[in-house]
Nucleic acid binder design. Structure first.
Lengths: 352, 352
DNA sequence: CCATGAATTGTTACCTGTAACATTATCATA
DNA sequence: TATGATAATGTTACAGGTAACAATTCATGG
């Protein structure tokens, strides 16, 4: 039996040196095959469908695999088929718990389907978004889930050239590259503002942080509702990230700028909760003297005293749906709905 | 000029068909080279260090790259060098915001260093952990950050065979595979329990969810402190995940089982916040009639009324340090400290 | 006892970028 | 002009698993 060709890999492992001292390379199929005395093709067949291999060999191959601790290697497959079984997920931020829930939704679908998630974030910078997308594509991801709706020309070109399915998530109002899944942020903010007005609030201030596209859309919705009801809008904002303490700070600012403020609508629950606690500390009664509403439906909003008014958004479902539609497209199905507009829910709670 | 060999890839793209109709393969270096009229090696040199290529070619190559929208491909490199520039991060859960902060810390180091994060989670199941680790290794990750301290024999074998640096995070008390970074959960729980006792609470109940290893360690610390002070311990727990509403529910349960309960120590802030709001709803004064403490130092704990007593843990720093030490090891540096024990901080707040 | 076909195993080529080595072009100096 | 050095470009081989095709084995029926 001529094994000269087969001995290329695996070095001279059998020469009796203590393996713990050798920086031994991770075993390949060839190493397993050498141990059994067959070609790597036979071992490959065993791994894909053991029925293709004779019963005697099955036992020996299994032993060899366990013995060497063989770990499958996707690299050759990725190279030859350009299929990685990995999905790139690109989000603006990991700080925001909203995106953590999106990831959870995505993973709940991808993981059972045997797909690996490659996570990246770009801190709301378009330059960084370009770089992250290039990186994800360099790993030959089979599909991409991205957020935001504005993309540079270079990003669009890369996505087009890559030829993989892309799904944009979070907002449903901009024309998608291929397919978008999200909510109508502007309509949601309009609805909540109207709800606050109906409850009797009129000097409502908008709290915004991280002026990304979705926040701007919500701001527009708020302004439209105020205007349609003959009220004056006022926005307090920052470019940095939102936080509970930012909400506290904004509350003070609002009362300075407009002492008769009787309502606060926040671009997310973090700010709203901070504002609410600031009122409690200052002895301002919520909702009698100050109505406070948030956005997204943070878990805590459903247990706190008073219950926070908020717009309940289907973050996790957005993630799930994005993953499901991506998998469907990977199976070759065409895009059925270019835009999937999910419903939001106005939860008045006890704070407005 | 004989180009017969060079025309293998790229098909017959130049034959005037509308490229938008062709399911065109993503361009390779060969395609770029064909367009310029050089070999792919020259283009490869340009990409790595454009000085290695003549000035005239530089211009033409740049044009061709832009024109075709070439995207680098890591697959060949991963195959031939077994280096992916990707780091696997394996966490028990993505639901828990504590882990979201760990991820943030990890990414804050890995991303600027040019490493890609491959995220996976295993829902506290050892079987799933095995599968996830095998998957991450199949992508040839250059290093791994994992949590938990107990691992199956198969996991240990895989990690050993893979020969890549591995860092375990979250707890610092178990002997690590190679290196561990975390806090002493047991000592932290002991300290907080003692603090509650000193504040005058004695019938303290422990709320636990998701009985993972860290929760069990904290429970031990609580029990030890109670015992050392001659007090009786009582634990209310569930195997499912913690949540704010779970904390509310536990509060009712505690008062049924032990009506004179005057303190609650929770394995995390979610439960504590839920318990606190339950007290507010029931008219139980905190901390006068009921002391409540949490664990981790959720952002909200620092703004709520009353301020929540909690153990402030350096989640993000754990992530950062893990990534930094991993990068250091990838540069060839040896493990300097097998265990890095980070300090926690007892924050009494206003709720005990 | 050989032909037939199914079952089993082997062989070759391929995917793409780059290290290592080889070749050709360019230029200054003897 | 020849020569050697340097710059620029080309050629070959390789990483590891698998598709596609080839070869071998073996049992069964004619």
């Amino acid at each position: 039996m001529d094994m000269s060709l087969d001995m290329k890999s695996s070095g001279m492992k059998s020469s009796g040196m203590k393996s713990s001292l050798i920086k031994s390379k991770r075993p390949t199929l060839q190493d397993v095959a050498n141990l059994v005395g067959v070609t790597k093709m036979t071992v490959s067949r065993y791994l894909k469908d053991s029925n293709q291999v004779s019963p005697q060999l099955r036992i020996k191959i299994k032993e060899a695999l366990d013995d060497l601790g063989y770990i499958p290697n996707r690299a050759p497959d990725i190279l030859s088929k350009s299929k990685s079984h990995a999905i790139g997920v690109l989000l603006p931020s990991l700080t925001n718990h909203v995106f953590a829930e999106v990831i959870r939704g995505v993973e709940s679908i991808l993981e059972p389907a045997g797909y690996q998630t490659m996570l990246a974030h770009y801190g709301y910078s378009q330059e960084a978004e370009e770089a992250r997308i290039a990186t994800l594509l360099s790993y030959n991801v089979d599909g991409l889930i991205i957020s935001e709706s504005y993309h540079t020309e270079r990003v669009r070109k890369m996505l087009s050239v890559a030829g993989i399915p892309v799904i944009e998530i979070m907002d449903s109002t901009s024309p998608p590259i291929e397919q978008a899944i999200g909510i109508d942020n502007q309509a949601a903010a309009y609805a909540m503002t109207e709800c606050m007005i109906k409850k009797g609030h009129s000097k409502i201030v908008y709290f915004a942080a991280r002026m990304d596209q979705r926040t701007l859309l919500r701001l527009q919705g708020y302004k439209a509702a105020m205007h349609d009801n003959g009220l004056t809008d006022l926005c307090i904002s920052t470019d940095s990230a939102s936080s509970f303490s930012m909400g506290e700070q904004f509350m003070k600012e609002a009362l300075e700028k407009q002492p008769d403020t009787d309502g606060i609508f926040c671009t997310n629950d973090d700010l709203a909760i901070g504002a609410l606690f600031a009122c409690q500390k200052a002895g301002i009664k919520v909702p009698e003297e100050m109505g406070i509403a948030g956005f997204h439906g943070h878990d805590i909003a459903r247990v706190m005293v008073p219950l926070l008014a908020t717009v309940i958004t289907p973050r996790e479902e957005i993630g799930r749906l994005a993953a499901e539609h991506l998998l469907s497209r990977l199976k070759g199905n065409p895009v059925t709905e270019k835009v999937i507009n999910l419903p939001f829910k106005i939860e008045p709670g006890e704070s407005i």
